[in-house]
Structure formats: structure tokens, C-alpha cells
Amino acid sequence: MVTPLMLEKWSGKIAVLTIGATREDGGSRAHVIKIGGQQSLPFLFQEGPSPHRPVIAFEVWDVYPQDWQESLQRAYVYSLKDPIVWAKTCVEDYNEQILCLRLQGIHPDYGNKSADTEAEFIKELLKKVDVPLIIIGSGDDVKDNAVLPICCEAARGERCLIGSAVQDNYKTLVASVLADGHNIIAESPIDINIAKQLNILISDMGLSLERIAINPTIGALGYGLEYAYSIMERCRLAALSGDKTLASPFICFVGQEAWRAKESKVNDDRQGIVWEVITATALLQAGADILVMRHPEAISKVNSYIANLFRE
């Protein structure tokens, strides 16, 4: 007897988000990165197309990451003291296609760098590396609102992904992103209703839904991973069923969460690496499109996992 397969017929589709602009598009990147476009749940290739693979972005800071575990810093072939060298290492030594720059240095506790210094730094970085950029703030709302717009301008035309807009602080960032031709990260606190609401608020300001990535706020393995996992599954089901306001791709800050876990601070380096790897693996199954990660070996393992999933 032939077993009848059960195929879901989805009416919706995840939006395609393009990060980076080449010379033809008015930027200076060597290539662009596209994510999203799925018409099925993750990796069910026989049910609907998944034209773009999930990508991993190395997290790079604009200052020396003094809080990072020694084991994490040691994993890099070059020192992390110089952010430009750090970024070049990720692109040239680890062959990474996209970077996530965290402007930690503008935070009052991490150097309180000024908007102008940061803008200069970004211009310099754009000259030294030619991959598309994700740029995120420091988590200090006041400083981020003052600095991010200047940084958006410094990277005008490069079609970066800029973050993060939150429900009670999105207007400044949306306006800059619109003015300078970037995309935006919409961050919601593990809450599908806020994610939807924020997407609507942002698109009401004129930034189209195709230019938004949802940051659902994740917890690491063992630290609330399952909450984000289910929120992402619910979001994806709603999007595939036709809700365009939830059909944005996901960006997940895996490294930041995994390297906070107690398990990443033990003597055995492998425990920390596998913690980041498994957090990423599980979130991929829930629909993650961009994973921002930290450990080069963890990144290499997850990259092979993704390549393996997409092998014909």
C-alpha cells in the first residue's frame, strides 16, 4: 500500500530581506545577503521552496570585549583588541559573509564613545571589509538614540540591518533607517502580539514589511530557550497562514545568550561551544534566519549543519 504524504498548503510566504548593497545598488559591498522567502516550515523542502539559507553573522564589537570569557577570546586567531583587525579576521580567516557590529563602546559603562567617533569608525570599517553589515546599539536607549542615527548616515546606501527598534522606542531609528536606505530589527520581549504590533507601527511609518527582521528575544539552551522556540513556531505558522505582519525573517542573538550561561564558564571549553551550537540548532528548527554568534568553532559547526541541510 502506498502511504499518502501529508502536505500542508500554505497561502503565506516569509518576506525576503536583502542586506548589503553592491556598487550597482549604490553601495560598496562585494555581495548581498538575502534571507527569508520560505513557503514551508523549516527544512521541509518537499512541501515548499526555501530559496535562501539561514546565515550566521559573527558578532564584532567596536571596543575590546573585556567581559568575554578568556576561552572565547582565545578561540580567535588574532587578538580582539583592535576592532578592525577583529572584523577582518572574521571575513578573511573565517570566510564569513556577513558581520554584526555591536556598538558597545557608546555605552556609558564601556567608554561612552561619541557619535562622531563612532561614525568615523564605521566609515573606516566599511573601507576595510566588504561584507554586508548588521549594526546594533549598546542597549542604553539614550545613547543609542543619539548615536545610531549618525551611524545610519555614515553607512548611507549600504543597506545595513540596524537595531533595535522596540515598542516604546522605535520612531527615531525608523526615521533614520528610512532616510538612509537601511533595514531594521524589531525587537519584542518573547511576545507574538508585541512582535505583530511593532511590525505594524514600523510599517505605518513607511518602512515596508520587507525591510524588517524580527528579534523575538531568545534565551539560551536551559535558560528559557523553549519560550522563544514556541513563539517563533507560532509566528511562522501565522505567517505561512497568510499574516503578512508576522512574515518577517528572524534574527536571533545566540552568542550573547549562550555565553552568559553558567555552562559556558566551566573549565571544559567544549561545554561552552556545544551550548552555543545546540542553542543555534534548536532555533534553526523553529525558523531562525540570522544567527548572531561568537565562537569561531561553534560558527563553523553550525555553518556545516546548515550546508548539510541544504545539500541536494
Binding site: G222, E226, Y229, Q271, V277
Partner: peptide
């Protein structure tokens, strides 16, 4: 059978099978 591998998988199972 390394404990670091087992712990990560047992933790994932605990997460996924917890009551939402």
C-alpha cells in the same frame, strides 16, 4: 558519551518537553 555533549542534549529535551 562525554558529559558535555550529554548535558546539552538532556537540557534541550528538558526545555522542549516542559509544559508551555
Amino acid at each position: 558519551i562525554d558529559s558535555w555533549e550529554a548535558l546539552s542534549l538532556l537540557t534541550l529535551r528538558q526545555n522542549i518537553y516542559s509544559d508551555p
